[in-house]
Design a protein around this nucleic acid. Sequence first.
RNA 1: CCCGCCUUAGCUCAAUUUGGCAGAGCGUUGGACUGUAGAUCCAAAUGUUGCUGGUUCAAGUCCGGCAGGCGGGACCA
Length: 320
Amino acid sequence: MNIEEKIQLIEEGTLEVIDTEELKEVLEKEQPIAYTGYEPSGKIHLGHAVTVQKLKQLQKLGFKIKILLADYHAFLNGKGTIEEIAETAEYNKKCFQALGLDETTEFVLGSSFQLEPDYTDKVYQLATMTTLKRARRSMDQVSRADDNPKVASVIYPIMQTVDMAALEVDVALGGMEQRKIQMLARENLEKIGENVPVCIHTPLLHGLDGDAKMSSSKGNYIAVDDSVEVISKKIKKSFCPQGEVEGNPMIEIAETFVFPNQDTLLIKRPEKFGGDIELTHDELIKDFSEGNLHPMDLKNGIKDFLIEFFAPVREFMEEN
RNA sequence: CCCGCCUUAGCUCAAUUUGGCAGAGCGUUGGACUGUAGAUCCAAAUGUUGCUGGUUCAAGUCCGGCAGGCGGGACCA
C-alpha cells in the first residue's frame, strides 16, 4: 500500500486531518506514534469506540499506539478522587483491550509521568504563554458543567499539550470535541520547540435520545460491554424518526460501525412486513429515507448487529 | 481579616413577608396513541430543606456555631 492509499484510508470516517501534508511525512517514518487520551470513565461506549476503531486501523498501518489513561485529567475535571479514577482506569484498559487493540498497544497512566520535573517545567512555560480566555474556550466541549469553574479547567488543556510532547506522538487522534484543545496544542508546541503532531478528528455520535452528543453522564449511550438485554432495551428506547437520516442515531451507528466492517446489514423482518432483507449502505439510506424501511426494522437490524459485534468484548470481559 | 448575600427533588427554582401537612416546571418511570422512538394525552415516584446546636405545641422559615459558594471592603513597607 502506498502513502496516498494509506492517507485515503486514514481520512475515511474522519472529519478532518490537520494536515494531510504533515501526515504524509509522518507516514514515511518507520514506526510513527499515534495516541488518544481518554479520561477514565464509568463506561466505555460507542463514542469511545469510534476513536478506538480508528486506532486499530492505524495500528494495522504500522503505527505504534499509545493510549493515555488520563487519570489526572479526569481528576482535574472533577470526576472523583485520584484513587477512584485509577480503579476506573484499570477497567477501561480492559475494555480497550477487549475492543481488539493488539498486545503492542501501550497503555500509559497519566500520573506515571505527569509529575516529572521536566513535564512540570513545560506546563509552567505554557502557562505563561496561554491566555485564560483561550484556555477556557478550548475546554468548551470538554469540561464538566460547573457554575464555579476551577483553575483546574485551564491547567487541563496545557497538560494535554505537554502530554503530546512527553509521549512523543506523531498523530493525536480525538473526537471533534477535542478540536480546540488540539489546535491550541499545535500552536503552543511550536512555541516551545516541540514536535507538532498531526491532529485527526472523528465525528461525535449523537446520543440514543437524539441529543447532540453521546456521553456517559447523560446516559444516552450503549456501552461496549453492555449485556444483550441492556443493548436491546436501549435500542428499543432510542430516538429514530421515520424517514429521517440526519441526526438519526441508528443511521449513524450503521454508518460508523456496520458498513466500515461489512458490506451489508442483515435485517430480520416478519413475513407480513416483507421478510428478511440484506442491505448495502446505499440501499439502506435509500430505503429508509423513502419510507420503505420501517424504523423498528432498522432498530432490530442494528440491535442484532451490535449484539454480535460486541460479543467478543463481553467474552473478553468475562474471561479477564 | 471584616461586612453582606446565597445553599430546598436529578436540574431550575417557589414556599421565608406573618413559624402551621415542602410545591411547580423540566427530567425520570409507567401507561394510552402510533408497527420504533419522539411529539401529544393520562398517571406515578422522588426530599437528612448544606451540617450542627437552640427557641417553640410546631422551624425550610426565628437565634447561635460550622462548612461551601458569590459579591464587596480592608491590607498593599
